[in-house]
Design a binder for these strands. Structure first.
Length: 280
DNA sequence: AATGAGCGC
């Protein structure tokens, strides 16, 4: 009797009015865990909390210095507890690997150029032999203007000023559509007054904010001499606003570029290309 | 959805 009483009295929970039962972690058969925690409120009341939790094991390669820190003795309220997070008090979040690098853009490009072939083979993606876009070579908008990469573009040997009366495909170019002179284009003497020449200017819309003037030039260059590329950008943020203007020396080239490039995929978007109208 | 900058002699 006395011994029973003694055992009963030994139980901390009843000995000390401020003591709490041991926290418990129960492994459930379905892989979840149930945690039971106890805490004491200021007014002396005891709170028992039961939580059912799911723990996903994060497989990771831990930085040795991080691993070392994990073994450090705990302090404060966790003093004396074992290593690792106490799952009754700590929630383990998603393990996000963040690799800050000032050259992220270059690195991304690098990865694109070195890894894309493998990636594309692995994912059975399509790579155009002409412009390396993600369409079949036969569907390339440049297929009759450009040779596949590595071969000389057929137009490269073309003189800067061919017979101005002869357009692409030998078609006659009427005088009002001729645009001779090496620096003809916006602001040239062929313009009426100081008006901007938009006769051979295309408006390109549905561009991504990551579009770049040079990319546009490279894409539109292939149809003829591009005299100007203007990519509208936000003056504050510098980000592309989603539209651009591409001017050609020759309206015929603009015409072909318009036909070929309207609907072309660039940076996950489908471009819309049409002849520009004068502003306002 | 959207039709362009900034120079100032």
């Amino acid at each position: 009797m006395a011994s029973t009483r003694r055992e009963w009295a030994e139980d901390d929970e009843f000995d000390d009015p401020n003591s709490l039962p041991q926290n418990e972690i129960i492994n459930n058969p379905d892989g979840t865990k149930t945690t039971i925690t106890y805490r004491l409120l200021e007014n002396g009341k005891k709170i028992k909390t039961t939580r059912k939790i799911k723990i996903s094991i994060i497989k990771e390669r831990v930085n040795p210095r991080v691993a070392e820190r994990r073994e450090w003795a705990k302090f404060g309220k966790e003093k004396g507890h074992g290593p690792g997070p106490d799952l009754t008090t700590t929630t383990i979040g998603e393990n996000i690997i963040f690799k800050p690098s000032p050259q992220w853009k270059a690195v991304e490009k690098e990865e694109e150029s070195t890894g894309s072939l493998k990636t594309q083979l692995k994912d059975k993606k399509v790579s155009c032999r002409i412009c390396q876009g993600d369409h079949f070579t036969a569907r390339c908008p440049f297929k009759d203007t450009l040779a596949p990469v590595g071969e000389a573009p057929p137009d490269e040997s073309r003189p800067d000023s061919p017979d101005p009366t002869v357009g692409v495909g030998g078609a006659y170019v009427p005088p009002h559509q001729r645009n001779k002179g090496k620096d003809a284009g916006p602001g040239s003497s062929f313009n009426s007054g100081r008006e901007r020449d938009d006769l051979a200017t295309l408006r390109v819309t549905n561009l991504s904010e990551f579009a770049e003037e040079n990319d546009l030039r490279d894409m539109f260059d292939r149809f003829g001499r591009v005299t100007r590329v203007f990519l509208a950008k936000d003056r504050e943020t510098g980000r592309a606003k989603g539209f651009a203007f591409v001017s050609y020396q020759d309206r015929m080239d603009a015409q072909r570029a318009c036909e070929k490039m309207d609907g072309f995929g660039y940076g996950h978007l489908i471009l819309k290309v049409e002849f520009a109208k004068r502003s306002q």
